[in-house]
Design a protein around this nucleic acid. Structure first.
Length: 256
DNA sequence: TTCGAAATAT
DNA sequence: CATATTTCGA
């Protein structure tokens, strides 16, 4: 970022490793985009490194995100704040394993935990694995193996999940006699459809054999500020299998 | 100790 | 308002 855009200056910066060049003053959108590009690049690089088992080189420069985060909140410019905001709920590579599973929720909780689609899928997978009768918070937690996720949080999520499940049982199987003519007033508590919710009305899967097709998240027609969709598109059915080597449950995917 | 319903909070 | 956290009795 420089105030002069003459060729010499640009060359100098590029020689020093700049990957782009912004002339002051900078519009916030420019920065925001740049930020995301760099972030994604790092993500990519990091993943590549992981593949080769070449993680954390000694001389590896600190991530930009880390640097921004390291800035005391009180000192952060509004620009930095604006840049940080969109990433708060972003799933970073160090929170995820090679399967795209979340392994740490530290940054998924702002004031309260956000159950992302992926985290929820893991939850569902664990519940399905156990069977709805044996799926209690502690066991679910044990299978999910997500750092910093508490039993209470799982219990809470389970409570809502079960509530939704009950709604389903009432609405779905009632295919037979619907003498009522469609229009049940909205005020009726026993509604025909469970209210639209971010996940619970998407994964009716409590049954172990649920091969419901990959559900897309058109949860809310809300903004998806980033161009690409989640890359967790490891569609298919996820379950857990016992890994006798590691002596623990590991993810198992059924693709189709 | 853990569950889970219900009250509370965000 | 949807959904996450806390409380509290079983």
């Amino acid at each position: 970022m420089a105030s002069s855009g003459d060729t010499n200056t640009v060359m100098k910066y590029v020689a020093n490793g700049a990957s782009d060049f912004l002339l002051k003053p900078v519009r916030i959108e420019e920065l925001s985009n740049i930020w995301q590009h760099i972030f994604r690049k790092q993500m990519q690089d990091h993943k590549n490194n992981n593949m080769v088992g070449n993680l954390e080189k000694p001389g590896h420069p600190p991530s930009i995100l880390a640097m921004a985060r390291a800035t005391p909140a009180t000192t952060r410019s509004t620009a930095t704040e604006a840049l940080l905001a969109p990433l708060e709920n972003e799933v970073r590579d160090d929170m995820v394993n090679y399967n795209g599973e979340i392994t740490d929720i530290r940054d998924l909780r702002k004031s309260r935990l956000t159950w992302t689609t992926q985290l929820h899928r893991q939850f569902i997978a664990a519940v399905n694995h156990l069977g709805e009768d044996k799926a209690v918070p502690k066991k679910i937690l044990g299978i999910m193996k997500v750092k910093h996720l508490t039993r209470e949080q799982v219990a809470s999520h389970l409570q809502v999940h079960i509530k939704y499940r009950m709604q389903l049982k009432k609405s779905i199987p009632t295919t037979s006699k619907h003498g009522a003519t469609l229009s049940s007033t909205a005020l009726d508590k026993t509604q025909d459809h469970p209210s639209r919710s971010q996940y619970f009305n998407q994964d009716g899967c409590m049954e172990i054999m649920d091969y419901s097709l990959p559900r897309d998240d058109l949860s809310s027609g809300s903004e998806c500020m980033l161009e690409e969709q989640n890359d967790y598109s490891s569609e298919g059915f996820q379950d857990f299998r016992w890994d006798s080597d590691k002596q623990e449950y590991g993810p198992c995917f059924w693709n189709f």
